[in-house]
Design a protein around this nucleic acid. Structure first.
Length: 497
RNA sequence: GCCGCCGUAGCUCAGUCGGUAGAGCAGCGGACUUUUAAUCCGAAGCGCGUCGGUUCGAGCCCGACCGGCGGCACCA
């Protein structure tokens, strides 16, 4: 048999046995086709319609009804029934499946034998006449066909599909072939991103691209990946957020900017975290966090409509709103302002059965309370407003509440999907906040943000009042598709070797 | 990193009290002009994630490791 090519990227090594027999059979068939003068990998199949378009053109046919309409479609053979003088095939393209009927008196014995000799998984293009079968199935009676590409490996089971989770993630192409649900999720994700772009483009925002390889990371909490540039002879960080560069563009007068792109955080993997993930951040001059909240609500409602969302949530504005401190008080009875120091707050937490970590600072304890007792309860779309200053080194001090900042996070299904604030534009305050972060870092907080002096110098040139937000695209895709794991909405999620 | 569950044919799965591994689909040979998980006949295919241990004997028991899922920790 033909030697296997070198393995790469997750293809398992082949054992002897059934699979190698199957591979040998398919390769033998390939050679028979070539010997018969059939090119197994032709360059093109022009002018094909989608299956959905063919279906739309004949939506009202009744069982047994014939037409004279000729259609060309292209796709993968997903099922075959019968093999004698007449055979039926299911042809699948991205838009759906269509039945094909092949008859020897239509094609001739030789072409019929070629067609019925093809394998499940082979890619074909066909031309045929539309009709409706006795049982009401729209079908094409094949008058001509072309093998578009030979498949040399067996596809997943035509009935049970592919359910093994590991195989679905590692070999997403097989998941997409076998599972319509997988195709739907990624189409929904694409429509969602397109709708976000459309909305922002129509509201005066311009799309920009800022560095992924950065001399200094920043703009969020999180540990970075470190890489190395050979020619420059220095280490660089993969970005963890787009925030600081985008605000420099606001300083530069671009006024409304957004960026959609990957962020990278060197942290754990679970159902809501993948080490590389996609965000959209946008910044708007002369807006505060309340204006951002209103636009965010409008944006999500717009996206929900664009993807045809029919799930359990109502995304129409305004969303339910709570304050950070109010939400904690309502769930735990702990009033943060009654516990202004670490020891007092830690004692209060022990009183409700949470053992605080000895290394946590006051703001980290407050954050712990939030994530343990509040976040899981935020199922319906909710905005949580007005965070403690210490948790928010890039946000502007609250106009009326000392110790707080003008910030909100958006939650759905107990999951944070967005984080926004009135951006801090006082350069002296920003520098002081960075210095405070440096102190946390020196005390061992690995996620504290490094001091970015270039950013502060940019602020010294003057940044208008600005509202900004970062939205987790993957999590939003989970919400809109009903997926319960981020791996279901990331095409190739991170896996061990 | 810790805890629990899981890993049997290309795919989907069964495998009793430890006794030497099965089914459907796919594939192979054959029949079949309206099927819908097409049907029927025939032949074939896995030594059970890996390594080690207990045993006369291990897919079943024990240990380690690898991988997956879930939870905890961490984070968005």
């Amino acid at each position: 048999m033909t030697p296997e090519p070198p393995n790469r990227g997750g293809a398992e090594s082949e054992p002897d046995g059934a699979l190698s027999d199957v591979l040998a059979d398919r390769r033998a068939k390939l050679e028979r086709l070539r010997a018969a003068g059939i090119e197994p990998f032709p360059p093109t199949f022009a002018d094909a319609e989608t299956v959905a378009a063919v279906r739309a053109a004949h939506a009202d046919l009744s069982p047994g009804e014939e037409t004279t309409a000729v259609h060309r479609v292209a796709g993968r053979i997903s099922a075959r029934r019968g093999q004698g003088k007449m055979a039926f095939f299911d042809l699948a393209d991205r838009s759906g499946k269509l039945q094909l009927q092949a008859r020897v008196n239509e094609l001739g014995a030789e072409r019929m034998a070629v067609l019925t000799g093809l394998d499940l998984g082979d890619l074909i293009g066909v031309e045929g006449t539309a009709f409706c079968s006795r049982s009401g199935e729209l079908s094409l009676r094949v008058s001509d066909f072309q093998l578009n590409a030979k498949s040399l490996r067996p596809p997943p089971d035509k009935h049970h599909g592919l359910t093994d989770v590991e195989t679905r993630y590692r070999r997403r192409e097989l998941d997409l072939i076998a599972n319509e649900r997988a195709r739907e999720i990624f189409i929904t994700r694409a429509r969602m991103i397109a709708a976000i772009r459309r909305y922002l483009d129509e509201h005066g925002f311009i799309e920009v691209e800022t560095p992924i390889l950065q001399p200094l990371y920043g703009g969020g909490m999180g540990r970075p990946f470190i890489t190395h540039h050979n020619a420059l002879g220095r280490d660089l960080y993969l970005r963890i957020a787009t925030e600081l560069y985008l605000k420099r563009l606001i300083v530069g007068g671009l006024e409304r900017v957004y960026e959609i792109g990957k962020q990278f955080r060197n942290e754990g993997v679970d159902t809501t975290h993948n080490p590389e993930f996609t965000t959209i951040e946008y910044y708007e001059a002369n807006a505060d966090y309340l204006a951002v909240a209103a636009r965010f609500e409008a944006l999500v409602a717009h996206v929900a409509a664009a993807v045809g969302y029919t799930g359990p949530h109502d995304f129409s504005a305004p969303w339910r709103r709570e304050t950070f401190a109010g939400a904690i008080a309502a769930r735990t009875g702990i009033v943060l302002t009654d516990h202004p120091d670490r020891a007092s707050l830690a004692a209060a937490m022990r009183g409700i059965g949470i053992e605080p970590k000895p290394t946590d600072s006051w703001p980290q304890l407050a954050d712990e309370l939030l994530s343990k007792r509040v976040e899981p309860t935020l199922i319906e779309p909710t905005l949580l407003l007005d965070y403690p200053l210490e948790l928010s080194p890039l946000a502007k001090r609250h106009r009326s509440e000392p110790g707080l900042v003008e910030r909100f996070e958006a939650y759905v299904d107990g999951m944070e999907i967005a984080n926004a604030f009135s951006e801090l534009n006082d350069p002296d305050d920003q520098r002081a906040r960075f210095l405070e972060q440096e102190r946390y870092k020196a005390e061992g907080d690995e996620e504290a943000q490094p001091h970015d002096e270039a950013f502060v110098v940019a602020l010294e040139h003057g940044m208008p009042p600005t509202g900004g937000i970062g939205i987790g695209i993957d999590r939003l895709a989970m919400v809109f598709s009903g997926a319960d794991s981020i791996r279901e909405v990331v095409l190739f999620p991170a896996m061990r070797d």
